[in-house]
Design a protein around this nucleic acid. Structure first.
Lengths: 215, 215
DNA sequence: CATTCTATTAAACGACCGTTTGAATGATAG
DNA sequence: CTATCATTCAAACGGTCGTTTAATAGAATG
């Protein structure tokens, strides 16, 4: 798609608007004014507003995937370093503590209240990332994990990271101004990595408690 | 407020609608149809739609606070048991893995994209909870914590819990049907408690690493 | 040149929005 | 009964929404 094509201009204008206010509140008139095109162009190029939204979400996904291909580690990299890299790149990808680019906000919006585009996003974007994380978890614990525990651990890691995006507004009210310096990405990644490493340390020993916990 | 009063009927009708579709997409006509009152009642009792929304959010907060007053533990309760209670009651309060009552969804919506009501919610609802958690964290680690670390640990715990609400849709696609049984609230609380306990175990030793971590 | 196809335009359509009006209703008080 | 008050009502207001129309301009094709 040519960068100066009308279709491209519309998507680039629609992205920030949908990301900011969602599908229903983003009006085609606003979008077309921002893109400097006639309102009828929506019908001409996308059929209707719904399809414009769909194409915009998929475009956002694609451009984020292009921008942040998943890091491959060299063979010898220690697992803890890989975990740190994973966490910090996830935080960075979410551009925690900064204004996120519209692509991120739009994808988050889609993941939280899934429309049609959600399944595609999860399958092509989220699952590969999560699979990489679970392989990493396997390296970090001593013994093989049950699938459900592997998932829960993964959710614990992801949850710690995502909370810094979900809860941005709350956290701004929560963290005193004097402590903001301690909440840069590197330090958050450091904390989450340590916290997780310790959390995993004795995990293998807890795998099979005393079978039969009730009587 | 009498339970059968018109004002009460309107709020009870507005709650689920605002929670489901947000402020902008919830129409006064839908609300009034659900409440079985005339549209002009909005102006009569609330002035305008915005004020109706505000009163509905505050009502939601109040009814949740009434329903789940914060648990007080007896003096001797072990800290780990308190942590488990905290986590499981938070998960339960969010009614993770179930359809949440409209009050929860409305409050989550407000916390994520703060309108006017947010500040009140955070101050009266969230901060007391968080303060309780931080006091609990102090009991769990051996030595006094820096304020910033206490906050980060708190966020790590909250983040793990909230992710099961934020990411509901994604997780439904992520967890194979055969493993759903392992994701009941008790088991999630168990995992998060253990994971957190281990995460905190060596925390005190990491407080002051080797000062000067570069070259 | 005449024709066909692509792209863009201003204007309008019907539907729905939040809000407002002014009359009707029914209970209460003098 | 009359007057007053709070409450409810159907109807309409002006505005914005997504969508559509029909006309237009310019390039491509014969």
């Amino acid at each position: 798609m040519r960068e100066d094509s009308t279709k491209h201009k519309i998507i680039e204008a629609a992205g920030p608007i949908f990301a900011e206010v969602g599908f229903e509140n983003g009006t085609v008139r606003d979008i077309c004014r921002a893109a400097d095109v006639n309102v009828a162009s929506i019908k001409y190029y996308f059929g209707d507003k719904k399809n414009l939204y769909l194409e915009t979400v998929l475009y956002a996904r694609q451009s984020r995937a292009d921008r942040y291909p998943f890091p491959g580690w060299s063979e010898g990299t220690p697992a803890e370093a890989q975990l740190y890299d994973f966490v910090s790149s996830l935080l960075r990808r979410l551009t925690v503590l900064q204004g996120a680019p519209w692509q991120v906000n739009l994808l988050m919006r889609e993941l939280m209240k899934p429309n049609e585009a959600c399944r595609v996003i999860v399958q092509e974007y989220f699952q590969p990332m999560f699979r990489g994380l679970m392989a990493l978890i396997d390296q970090l614990v001593k013994c093989p994990l049950k699938e459900e525990d592997r998932l829960k651990i993964g959710f614990s890691i992801i949850g710690q990271c995502l909370h810094y995006r979900y809860g941005t507004a709350v956290m701004d009210l929560m963290v005193p101004a004097g402590l903001r310096d301690s909440f840069e990405i590197e330090q958050l990644a450091d904390h989450i990595t340590k916290f997780t490493m310790h959390g995993l340390e004795n995990y293998s020993e807890q795998q099979m408690p005393s079978q039969g916990e009730s009587d």
